[in-house]
């Protein structure tokens, strides 16, 4: 075993603290899942806050929701689902050690991620234009204006935190792309691509929950 500790006779990509590649990959995957659990609890605080206030003020939340742009939200949902597919393809190509394949699918994933952010930018701009940003520009004057502000606080807090995760994700994606272009990832050593895939899917899933809770809620308003 001692020879593993030394620098020679070392498989490509194996860090010094590990004995072999399967141990390293298992550690990376468990590490990313552990991190995602912390992320679930992080977003969980937002979701709990949302659910509590929605149960306090259902009318204000329905009204707030009806001002959101469902077609744009639905478009973004589609964009993210497709980006999950391209990311899964990138992971698949990394298992084959197909450098070109990884690069193509990473670029596609990155473009879809940027598309999402651009759409988000237009949505945010519209909200600023209509004065629906609590604390900065706030136009509604009605009786339930404070509760409406609470809905929009949560809207900006939750989608903003989600967008921040998207931006971090795209940054990591660029870094992965450069490493791939340098030929770092092979059929044996591809854990970074794989665990980045887990992260990307997680960020998508958060959106899958945000879309109905924030956007589709307003379509229920007539029923109450």
């Amino acid at each position: 075993m001692a020879d593993h500790a030394l620098h020679h006779d070392h498989p490509h990509g194996l860090a010094h603290q590990f004995e072999d590649m399967p141990q390293q990959k298992e550690s990376a995957v468990i590490g990313m899942w552990s991190f995602l659990i912390t992320e679930i609890l992080f977003f969980g605080g937002f979701f709990a806050t949302y659910l509590i206030y929605r149960s306090y003020y259902p009318e204000a939340f329905f009204e707030g929701s009806s001002h959101l742009d469902i077609p744009l939200g639905a478009f973004n949902t589609m964009v993210l689902i497709i980006s999950s597919l391209t990311m899964a393809m990138a992971v698949h190509k990394s298992h084959e050690g197909n450098k070109k394949g990884i690069m193509v699918y990473l670029i596609l994933t990155g473009i879809l991620g940027l598309t999402f952010l651009v759409v988000k930018y237009f949505e945010y701009s519209a909200k600023i234009e209509y004065g629906l940003v609590p604390g900065l520009v706030w136009h509604p004057q009605g009786e339930n204006s404070p509760q409406l502000a609470l809905f929009y606080s949560l809207y900006f807090g939750m989608t903003g935190m989600h967008a921040l995760h998207m931006i971090i994700g795209i940054g990591l994606l660029i870094w992965l792309f450069i490493k791939t272009a340098q030929g770092t990832y092979t059929a044996e050593y591809n854990a970074p691509v794989e665990i980045f895939g887990l992260y990307w899917h997680f960020v998508d899933i958060v959106w899958i929950f945000l879309f109905p809770l924030l956007y589709l809620l307003g379509t229920q308003a007539g029923g109450h």
């Binding site: 969980g44 937002f46 609590p134 807090g157």
Partner: peptide, 19 residues
């Protein structure tokens, strides 16, 4: 992570006037 989000909410409230 839960204290993290709580402090984020607190900072948003104090910094931006979210309620």
């Amino acid at each position: 992570p839960v204290i993290a989000i709580t402090l984020v909410l607190l900072m948003l409230e104090r910094g931006f006037g979210f309620g």
